[in-house]
Computed example of a mutant assay.
Amino acid sequence: MNLSDLSYVLHPLQAAIRDGFVRVNEGVPSKPGLALRPGDVVACRLPPLPSLEASPEDIPLDVVYEDDHLLVINKAAGMVIHPAPGNYTGTLVSALLHRFGLPSVRLSADDSPGDELEAAESEDGDEERAVPWALPETPMSVGQSGDVIRPGIVHRLDKGTTGLMVAAKDERTLTGLAAQFKAHTVQRVYHAIVLGVPKEAEGVIETNIGRDIRDRKKMGVFSYMGRHAVSGYRVIEPLAGDSAAYTAWRLQTGRTHQIRVTNDHRWTSVESHPLLGDDTYGGAGGTAVAAIGRGKGARQVVAHRVLKLLARPALHAKTLGFVHPVTKEALSFTSELPTDFATVLEELRNLD
Rank of each mutant, 00 (worst) to 15 (best):
E329S: 14
L320C: 11
K75F: 02
L275K: 03
A119R: 02
M165S: 05
T287D: 04
D115W: 00
N263G: 15
R129G: 07
R172A: 13
V221C: 04
L320Q: 06
S269D: 15
L195W: 01
A314L: 15
V64N: 04
D352H: 14
P113S: 15
L3E: 05
A317R: 08
R150M: 14
W249K: 01
K328Y: 04
I81G: 00
R266E: 07
G254W: 02
S51Q: 13
G220D: 03
T247K: 04
E128L: 03
T287C: 04
S94C: 10
A245H: 02
L345T: 14
L174Q: 08
T256P: 02
P103A: 04
D115I: 05
Y8W: 09
T173Y: 02
I81Q: 00
A95N: 07
I236Y: 05
E347F: 06
E329G: 13
L345V: 14
L46A: 03
N74T: 12
T343P: 00
V194K: 05
P83N: 12
A201T: 15
Y65T: 10
L348V: 11
V105P: 01
R37H: 11
D68E: 08
C44E: 08
A119E: 04
S51K: 13
V204D: 09
R188D: 08
W267L: 15
P103L: 05
V64K: 03
T173E: 07
T185K: 12
P113T: 15
H257P: 06
A134L: 08
T185S: 15
V230N: 00
D62G: 06
A244D: 13
V235H: 03
G232N: 07
L307C: 13
T280K: 13
D5Q: 13
S94V: 08
